[in-house]
Every structure is written in C-alpha cells, then in structure tokens.
C-alpha cells in the first residue's frame, strides 16, 4: 500500500442482489484516523457495503480495496488487519474467553489484557458460554474482542442495537478511546443519536448511491443548524417546536452551529441532488 493511499478505496462499485440493484457507480475513500458514520434509510445498502469492504460479498463490477488489496480476494494479509462486527450473529457454543483465544490466534495485534479490561468495562463475564449470554451481552463481548484485536480497519454494523442506555454511553467512550491515528472505524447506524459526537466524517447513502461523505467541520461550514421563530424559505429541512422552527439552512455567513445528525440526515434525504452538489465541491 502506498503512503498516501486511503485505507479503503471504492471505485465505480456496482452491486446487486439478482434483479435488485443496490449500488451503481459508487466511489468513495475512507482514511485512517477517523471514525466514519455510515447513515442511510433501511435497505439502502449500509450492511451490504460493510460486507463488500470485508470481502464477504463480491461486487458485480468496480473495485473495492482495503490496505491496497482487493477485498473480494479475502487475502489473509488484508483480513488480519480487518474485523467486521455484524448486526446479528450466531454466537458459538463456547465460552467467550475461549472464543477470543482461538479467534485471536491469527491477529498479530491482539491484546488479551485489553480484551479482559473491555469485558470488565462492559460488565461481561468472559467465562460464560457465548451463546448463553443475552443479545446485548453477546454484542458487548464481540465489541470488546473486536476492539482488542487492534486491526487497522474495524467495521461495525449497528453496534448500539440491543444495548441499554449505560452501555451505549460506555460504547461511545471505548470506541473513542480505541481510535488511533492508523485505524479506520466505520459504524453503520440508523440510530444517529446513539453515536452523535463520536462519528466524524459522516457518510449518507441513498438508493442512488452516496449523498455525502464529509467531515463534521465541513458540514458545519456549509450548513447552519438553528432554531428561529419563523420558517426560512431557504430551509433544507425544518421541524416545528415550542421555541419556533428548528431548521437546516445554507451557512452563507459561516456561522458556528452544532451539527445535528438527525436533522442533517433528514435534510440530506429531502434534498439529495442539492446536497450531492454542495458536498462534492
């Protein structure tokens, strides 16, 4: 892999399930040192994209490479630096600790002390049988294991699903602690509030491809998230409330505002072409 090459590069990707087209000409790149938030409505292909990046699915055409290696080849050199946490998985009928022990053998960066620490943080008993834990506990055990692998690419599909409120807070904290300069973390979610303040950049997908792939800084430069007593005709999206209208507006004066992911997502879905043009610059 060349020095300035992005960790994940997708070029003109086309993917379909038989007659159902999911991606047509999708191009994007994911760089190290970031926690990407992959947002989109149900069925736009968030999980499919993560599966393509991890080599579980093969694109019909185009290219997807991870660390300079074509992902569909499932090359061990690529796989030892990548881990995928599926949204739903069948836990094996072995203790969590043995699962971690056996599955970590082929990952050179695995840190067992870190795994034990993360299990304690998430209050998961590593000596319990994996399949006998509750759904939430299973997910926390797998997240602990995945983070302890220290892979350069970590793909998480809806990691906050099934977690209780304190666990969601812990999840945000541990992910931000584990983010390093050479690591790219991609989190697919439709529960944007769970991961607000954690994900940056934001990638929003729709049925025609990608609407935007931009950093929070870039978004706040281009969009203003504000509450006003009257509804602006320029508003990309608005919602009425007790204090007036919460709106997403074009940020002509480069005023500071806090990016609201839910509002951004709704505005992007309502103004797909405008946002594509706005963020392609």
């Amino acid at each position: 892999m060349e020095k300035n090459e992005p960790t994940v590069r997708i070029e003109n990707l086309r993917f379909s399930y038989r007659k159902h087209l999911v991606f047509e000409n999708l191009s994007m790149s994911l760089e190290a040192g970031r926690i990407y938030g992959l947002l989109g409505e149900n069925g736009v292909g968030k999980t499919t994209l993560l599966r393509i990046i991890s080599g579980l699915l093969r694109p019909k055409s185009g290219d997807c490479s991870v660390l300079g290696i074509r992902s569909s080849s499932r090359n061990p050199e690529m796989l030892k630096d990548l881990y995928f946490i599926p949204e739903i998985f069948i836990a094996p009928p072995i203790p969590v600790r043995r699962f971690a022990q056996s599955n970590s053998l082929l990952y050179p960066g695995y840190d067992n002390a870190m795994f034990e620490r993360l299990c304690r943080t998430f209050e998961v008993d590593a000596s319990s049988r994996f399949d006998r834990l509750s759904q939430g506990q299973q997910k926390k055990a797998l997240i602990s294991f995945a983070l302890a692998l220290n892979t350069r690419v970590l793909l998480m599909d809806e990691p906050s699903n099934g977690l209780d409120i304190p666990s969601k807070t812990t999840l945000r904290r541990v992910i931000s602690e584990c983010a390093t300069e050479d690591r790219v973390i991609v989190i697919s979610t439709h529960q944007v509030r769970d991961l607000e303040n954690l994900i940056d950049p934001i990638v929003i997908l729709d049925r025609e491809g990608m609407i935007l792939n931009a950093s929070v800084e870039d978004i706040s430069k281009k969009l203003l998230f504000t509450t006003a007593p009257t509804l602006s005709p320029e508003a990309y999206w608005s919602e009425s409330g007790l204090n007036g209208y919460y709106q997403v507006l074009p940020n002509r004066d480069e005023a500071d505002s806090r990016v609201n992911l839910e509002a951004l997502f709704n505005a992007a879905l309502k103004n797909k072409e405008t946002f594509k043009t706005l963020f392609s610059k």
Partner: peptide, 21 residues
Amino acid sequence: KNENRRMEGVFYAVSPSSTLE
C-alpha cells in the same frame, strides 16, 4: 455445519487464513 451459512459463517469467512489453508 455453519461455515457456509450467511449469518453463522461470518467469523469463519473473515478469519485471516487463505482458502487453501
């Protein structure tokens, strides 16, 4: 039994060894 199944086989598929291995 689970290695080729879509949900159960994910851990097997992403395990970093080659197909030959």
